[in-house]
């Protein structure tokens, strides 16, 4: 029944992540991809919003996109799980629908 939401925009430039968080239901999964992963770094002003969302949604970040942007393992917010493309496929297959917040 759950939805996989994908966010590919930087939360510091656009409101895609905010809009996604506003529309995600408890039990949904949120996957940060491309510039969306910038929100996953510790210490950013968006971190509290993501931490709050973790209470009801599972949050993932695409590892290759983190690595490409110089965000290394210890810098990712606690509780955000890193997945590879195969993990992305598993998340999409495991949800009932995929909603992209472009």
């Amino acid at each position: 029944m759950s939805t996989l939401h994908t966010v590919n925009k930087s939360a510091y430039e656009r409101n895609a992540l905010k809009s996604c968080l506003d529309h995600a239901l408890p039990g949904d999964a949120i996957l940060l991809i491309e510039d969306g992963v910038l929100a996953a770094r510790k210490g950013g002003s968006i971190a509290p919003a993501l931490t709050a969302a973790k209470a009801s949604c599972k949050i993932y970040a695409l590892g290759p996109d983190l690595a490409a942007r110089g965000i290394v393992a210890g810098q990712v917010l606690e509780g955000i799980e890193t997945v590879d493309y195969a993990g992305f496929v598993d998340l999409a297959a495991g949800a009932s629908r995929v909603c992209a917040w472009l």
Partner: peptide
Amino acid sequence: HQASDTAYQFTKAALEKGH
């Protein structure tokens, strides 16, 4: 944009998993 790259990696991963 990275869209086509990400889609390619997703598609390849899905096919390699047998989807």
